Amino acid sequence: MDINALPIHERKATLLVDTSRAFLMCGKHERALNILRAAADIAPEEVTGRPAALRLVRDILATAPISVRREAREYAATLGVHA
């Protein structure tokens, strides 16, 4: 899907949050984190203001391998999320 075809930033961000969750479910933590960050870049309130998105941040943080854990922890801290 071409995300640029979506006219509303919030919808783009919501799609990215859902995509991030899918990557996390496949064990691709770094990809999930990067996509979640992209969602926050497009529409920050869709990440910071949605409990489901904040749970996703916690889930990434809780299950991230060592190679991603530091980056996930730093990002979670910027959002005020603690595991």
Rank of each mutant, 00 (worst) to 15 (best):
R31F: 12
S20D: 14
V68Q: 00
L16N: 01
R37D: 12
S20F: 07
C26D: 15
K12E: 04
V57E: 01
L33Q: 06
N34Q: 12
E10Q: 13
R37P: 11
R31P: 06
L36N: 02
E10R: 12
L33C: 14
T19G: 05
L16Q: 01
E74Y: 13
L61Y: 00
K12A: 03
A76P: 07
R31Q: 14
F23N: 09
A64L: 04
A39P: 11
R73A: 12
R70C: 12
I42A: 11
H29R: 12
I60F: 00
R21A: 02
D18S: 03
E45S: 08
G27E: 12
D18G: 03
C26E: 15
E46Y: 09
R70K: 15
I42V: 14
A5M: 02
L16E: 09
R50W: 08
V47D: 01
R31E: 14
L15H: 12
N34L: 11
P7F: 03
V47C: 04
A72I: 01
A39N: 11
L16H: 07
T48G: 09
E46A: 08
T14Y: 01
G49T: 13
D59N: 15
H9S: 11
P65A: 01
A38G: 12
R55F: 15
A72E: 00
L24C: 10
A64M: 03
K12L: 06
L33F: 10
R58I: 06
E46Q: 09
V17L: 07
G49H: 08
A22Y: 07
I42Y: 05
D18R: 04
I35Y: 01
T14C: 00
G27I: 04
R50H: 08
D18E: 05
E71M: 05
F23S: 07
E46S: 11
D41E: 09
C26S: 12
E30R: 11
R69I: 02
M25P: 11
A39Q: 14
A40V: 07
I60Q: 00
M25E: 13
R69E: 06
C26M: 13
E45C: 03
K28Y: 11
L15V: 15
T63L: 01
P44L: 05
V57P: 08
A32M: 12
T19A: 07
M25Y: 11
A52H: 10
D41F: 07
L56F: 13
